[in-house]
Design a protein around this nucleic acid. Structure first.
Lengths: 152, 152
DNA sequence: AGATAAATGGAGGATTGCTCCACTTCTAAT
DNA sequence: ATTAGAAGTGGAGCAATCCTCCATTTATCT
């Protein structure tokens, strides 16, 4: 979808669109803001049950699901997530928090970074972007991330 | 890099470029053909030592490394790899073979598909695309894929 | 040589991104 | 109510790129 088309549908001029959202990423971030806020919020609620491993798993699944909804969001997630909207900040903070707690609880390897995780969420989102109901595939891929493909 | 620029540097007209490589992916595939052939070949040689787990690991590392070399190849790897050049076919066949052997040897989960693996190779390649010497980061991410982020 | 086939180059239409500035609307001070 | 200045808006238009189409050149065959 071209930005001219976006402007037309929003019934504003292309100049106005560019002033409000200087980059495509800014527009995507704004579009996903509430969605991201709600992912972060429901994750915060879940953590109350003191199961850091499961909380992390659910967070990853929901983030991947919400990232795969808008075409082309997945590929730019790395940039989008750094653009400072409340939703992006909430997602980032919550991710770091979950990772820290999971490490403290000893259920996650110490050498795992938030970047590692975002990298895999991007991959999962790209992979399922065209699926109609991607939930089960996402669950499978998140499971691969958590447990690896090796037999235990 | 625009395709006009590619044509100019190759000293052919833009029409000729398009006839020989109808899509960007075809051009990328042709560019990477020898590289992919050599990855597949060295992987075949390695398998002689009857360590399927290690052979798979090396294959993944080399594929990710060679995919991250050309800017923008990573994001289209899924399409590129299906385009039928000898290199792409060799990579695909070798990947399936390694996966089958590793499963037979009981070192890889049965529910892991070749698509799952390409998906993660894409992610890894995108993540390290801008790194100067990505080898160690690739090794880390491949290790995450193989062993998961959970503590064992 | 002449006819036919194959390959080539690049002009040009279409799309999209993005800037710039003439114009409109709002704000607030008198 | 008037008006000067600030803030906001719209869209014309340039630049970049993609890709098609066909006049021309080059190769091949008899």
């Amino acid at each position: 979808m071209s930005l001219e088309e976006v402007a037309k549908r929003a019934k504003v001029g292309i100049g106005t669109l560019y002033r409000r959202f200087p980059t495509r990423e800014a527009l995507l971030a704004a579009t996903s803001n509430e969605r991201f806020l709600s992912v972060a919020e429901s994750s915060r609620g879940r953590d109350a049950d003191h199961d850091p491993g499961n909380a992390l798993r659910k967070y990853l699944e929901e983030l991947a699901l919400n990232t795969s909804i808008y075409q082309n969001l997945a590929a730019s997630l790395g940039t989008v997530i750094e653009c400072g909207t409340p939703g992006c900040n909430a997602i980032t903070e919550e991710g770091h928090r979950l990772l820290r707690r999971a490490k403290e609880a000893g259920v996650i390897r110490g050498d795992t970074s938030f970047d590692d995780i975002i990298c895999v969420v991007i991959a999962i989102s790209i992979a399922v972007e065209k699926d109609r109901s991607p939930e089960s595939r996402i669950a499978h891929l998140v499971d691969l991330l958590l447990n690896g493909i090796s037999v235990r």
